[in-house]
Amino acid sequence: MSFIRTLRGDIRPEDLGFTYSHEHIVCRPAYWVEKEADDLLLDDKEKSKLDVADFKQHGGKSIVDATAVDYGRDVQAVKEISEELDIHIVGTAGFNKSFLWDAGISERLKPMIGDYRTYSEWIDATSINSLTDFVIREVEDGLEGTPYKAGQVKFGTGYNRITPLEEKTLRAVARAHLETKAPLHSHTEAGTMGLEQIELLQSEGIDLSHMSFGHMDRNPDPYYHEQIASTGAYLSFDGVAKIKYAPESTRIHCILELVKKGYEDQILVSGDTARKSYYKHYDYGLGLEYIIAKWVPRFIDDANRQGFDGRALINKFFVENPARCFTFNK
């Protein structure tokens, strides 16, 4: 039995349609709240909804919301956006990365995990098996006590290092994947430590064809990308529009290098749009419409000029590949 799990229930893979594979829609990360970093707080459901509506207006069907428990997700608000706009949204169980974990834990979470002050304290004090059980419950019962179930499980590591607590959450999430068959996703800080994550995942017996690695375009190294792709994993180029990290020509070059090597079935594309200043309806940014309305035509033209079938590749990156990547196979 194959299905994709959304906040509104399970759907057939062929019903997913044009998909952004890594976004954030409504979230108030405790770490950034405590730092008073307002730009990193997507805290207005109605403004977020307007950007999602723009995406839908241009033909978008589905969004994977990669907001984990330690990044201040608002499950109810995102579910309401999904319902009100009739768009599929995939939720995320698991964890992000260690530098976020010194933030205070919300009161709503404490009944489910105990009276810990910070995420670091909770993760440090809890066994891998108990963390695994927490992730499994979020996939099979619902996120943070809601009835809305996660459609992928996630872990993350920091820049050029994996801390002991990050390894602990990686192993817990890997084991939750083995139990639930939920697709796996990782945060790689600036695109680093993907190969080291792979070593740990392989020690847990993970089939990497169920795995997607985030932020690959933050490390625009075609040799490195090929090493990851050769394992069968998906590579997420999810920094589109963030020219401060690299021009689109660099991102497109890396994608097409993978296509030349035969890995076009393992590429995902998205924007990781996680700041008010990236959103159109918060702070006049390019918004969720940018990729589907502006980047896609540019990619098609660029790829066609280089001898590729740009439109066919777009269909792979946004329709066919997500439909496979985010599928539970039970």
Rank of each mutant, 00 (worst) to 15 (best):
S82M: 03
N321V: 08
K330Y: 10
A241N: 15
L40A: 14
Y116I: 06
L184F: 02
I228L: 15
L208Y: 01
T231Y: 11
M216R: 00
S186Q: 06
K316D: 04
I300C: 06
A293Y: 05
A303S: 08
K316N: 10
S62D: 03
F99A: 04
P147D: 11
K316A: 00
A68R: 03
D74N: 10
M112A: 13
W32P: 03
Y20S: 02
E179V: 12
T192R: 12
D283F: 05
P247I: 06
P164Y: 08
D207F: 08
S270A: 15
H185W: 06
N160C: 08
A303R: 01
L41V: 06
Q76G: 03
V75N: 01
A77S: 15
L41I: 09
E320L: 13
H210R: 13
V26Q: 00
D124N: 14
Y224S: 06
H225R: 04
G17M: 07
G287W: 13
T169Y: 08
H24R: 05
A93Q: 02
F55I: 05
H24N: 11
Y234V: 06
G145K: 13
D301C: 08
D238E: 08
P220W: 05
L131F: 04
F134S: 03
N329Q: 09
R305I: 07
V64T: 05
D51I: 11
D141F: 09
V319W: 00
G142E: 10
P29L: 09
E34C: 04
S277L: 10
L313Q: 09
K181H: 14
I314T: 14
F18R: 00
K261W: 01
F299R: 06
V296F: 05
G205M: 13
K97S: 14
Y282V: 14
